[in-house]
Simulated scan of single mutants.
Amino acid sequence: MTQDALLGPSDIRELAAALDLRPTKQRGQNFVIDANTVRRIVRAADIGPDDAVVEIGPGLGSLTLALLGAAGHVTAVEIDDVLAAALPATVAARLPARADRFALVHADALRVTELPGPPPRALVANLPYNVAVPVLLHMLATFPGLERGLVMVQSEVADRLVAPPGSKVYGVPSVKTAWYAEARRAGAIGRTVFWPAPRVDSGLVSLVRRDPPPTRASRAEVFAVIDAAFAQRRKTLRSALAGWAGSAAAAEAACEAAGVAPTARGESLTVEDFAHLAESRPTRGGA
């Protein structure tokens, strides 16, 4: 792929002007204008010619073009009408030899349940700040063939996604991500590589798919106890899980059956602990 194929600051602004595009905060639109940054992301994602990649929120195509230069196939999911209409033309103009390896899905990523082309093995995306966590969790849940991912998110969200139990920022995103994957920080991204420049720094998070904890409980049941535990995170599990279990006494019994201290708080539990709790939830009739 030639240097000219990638988008620079002037290219981005020219495309935006031609489309009469004004990035909106509502959709978390901050476009990457630095070619070195998208190359770095593709390298960190370890994308090769055998990979089918799904990208969320491709925007004007900065990362899309870099991914197409390395991957076997790229499917981009874009909700914005103007951007979705323009991206295929940008790909055709910049990388005509690879245009047949590109597919666009014009949809809300949170509602996507199937994708054209080969099943994606990797998720690589500059996720819109306002929906980063729900989109990530939806994609991991909906496409079990995703073996790995590299996402760019707001720096504090990156911290939450990779936080271990006991950390001050450990919470629902941390535990639910751990259900699907091992997450780690893969670098920091400054504000100046975006247009418009956000008011916060960004971080890269690397994800490698893992098997969920062995449990008789369903994912929905495990996620329900996670939500309950962190809804009142300052309370002990005996109190925080009272509504989930049916009473404080039933919550205490569930904790004891799961081998978890009723006096503990949600931020000290692993995803395996939550799976054990979900298994130990009393039936409504017996609580």
Rank of each mutant, 00 (worst) to 15 (best):
P164G: 06
V153W: 08
L87Q: 12
A229D: 09
V260T: 12
R234G: 04
Q154I: 08
P164W: 11
L87I: 15
V131M: 12
P116W: 13
P282A: 12
P144G: 13
G243N: 09
V54I: 15
L150S: 13
A107S: 11
P198E: 02
E267N: 13
A109S: 03
G243M: 13
L19Y: 12
L95G: 08
D81H: 13
T113M: 02
G190K: 02
T75K: 10
D81A: 15
A251P: 02
M139T: 03
T142Q: 10
E267D: 15
A44P: 09
A122H: 12
A261D: 15
V124H: 04
V172Q: 04
D108R: 01
Y170K: 04
G266P: 02
A250M: 03
A188G: 10
G48C: 09
D11T: 12
A249W: 00
I12F: 03
G171F: 04
S62P: 06
D34F: 13
A16F: 11
A178I: 10
A188I: 10
G28Y: 14
D227S: 12
I189W: 01
R216E: 14
S167W: 00
P88L: 10
A71T: 04
L269K: 08
L137D: 05
P120V: 07
D51R: 09
G243E: 11
S155C: 01
R199I: 01
S10M: 08
R219V: 04
H73R: 13
R43M: 08
L237Q: 05
T270C: 08
G259T: 14
D108T: 01
W179P: 04
E156H: 11
V200T: 07
S218Q: 08
V193D: 03
R265K: 14
T75M: 12
D46R: 14
S10T: 15
A109R: 02
D108E: 01
L269R: 05
M1Y: 11
Y180N: 09
F102V: 06
H106I: 02
P58I: 10
P119I: 11
T64Y: 04
V208G: 00
A103V: 00
R98P: 02
D11P: 04
R238F: 01
I33R: 14
E182A: 15
A66S: 14
R233M: 08
A99C: 03
K176N: 02
A109I: 04
F194E: 01
R40V: 02
R238I: 02
V193S: 05
A103D: 15
Y170D: 00
V169Y: 00
A5P: 01
V133C: 07
S167V: 03
T270S: 15
L67F: 14
T113K: 10
A245Y: 00
A229Q: 08
W244F: 14
P262F: 05
V169G: 03
A254M: 09
G166T: 05
L123I: 06
F102I: 05
A254Y: 13
R98L: 15
G190L: 03
P196I: 00
Q154G: 10
V193N: 07
I33G: 11
G266Y: 05
G243H: 10
E221K: 07
M139D: 01
A264R: 12
V77T: 10
L7I: 08
A275Q: 05
F143H: 07
I226L: 13
A45P: 06
A253V: 09
N36S: 15
S155Q: 14
V200C: 07
P58N: 08
V124S: 00
